[in-house]
Design a protein around this nucleic acid. Structure first.
Lengths: 114, 114
DNA sequence: TTGACATGTGACTAATTGGTCACATATTAT
DNA sequence: ATAATATGTGACCAATTAGTCACATGTCAA
């Protein structure tokens, strides 16, 4: 197994980190402080450690802006584990595709775009 | 977040456990011993602990057969996190579906089944 | 029944991880 | 320059987890 993939899996194992990804999904480019305000039960240092793990897994990228640091969600690694590992097991996606095919075969031009 | 989902994420965080799932995907119904033979670097007890974690996450089910215990892969929880969490981030699946649509729109009856 | 085989349990240690803090650096505003 | 703001670093401790072992239970075969 790709060591990068392992880092992604381990990064996703923590609920706080998944919550951070959700927050960035909701509003990209947030600073450390903004992310800290979302989790008052943890200190800034705890949040920073989680951010470091997410960065190491390449799930978030950063950009220094003055004395602040903006954080951006990078969904690519999630897509990779979905394509290269999860798709092997997850029929639901296959089911979704089969449903889509079914729709398309009945009338391609009217297929649902979602 | 659903506590069940959390158990699945944490279970998938360990490479040994993912390797066990791969082994069961390859050949279902393996006993503890059979799974141990696959990882000579770990004792039977270590493997059993990982199996317990996978069972707790409902990723493997078991069946006692005489003095042996057969283990079966249950991909449903993986499908659930894919549907309920990963799909939110992973465009690659969407891309895959779009590609499929493209194929189907050119000739539905000759579309790739994979 | 006896012995070999397959799995289960609790205790224990070592390693990893989560979290906090004191302190340091860099940037902006006054 | 000074002070306030925002982030960074290393040490440190607590909690969890990975792994092993001695020992126990249950099952099959002779």
């Amino acid at each position: 197994m790709d060591p990068d993939m392992d880092a992604v899996f381990r990064a996703l194992a923590d609920p706080t980190r998944r919550s951070i990804l959700d927050a960035l999904f909701d509003h990209d480019g947030q600073t450390v402080q903004a992310l800290c305000n979302r989790s008052p039960e943890m200190t800034r240092f705890g949040v920073m450690k989680h951010l470091a793990v997410l960065e190491a897994a390449n799930l978030v990228t950063t950009k220094r802006v003055g004395r602040t640091k903006q954080h951006f969600l990078n969904p690519v690694p999630i897509g990779e584990i979905a394509d290269r590992w999860i798709s092997k097991y997850a029929q639901p996606f296959t089911r979704g595709m089969v449903d889509l095919r079914h729709d398309l075969e009945r009338g391609p031009s009217r297929a649902n775009t979602a």
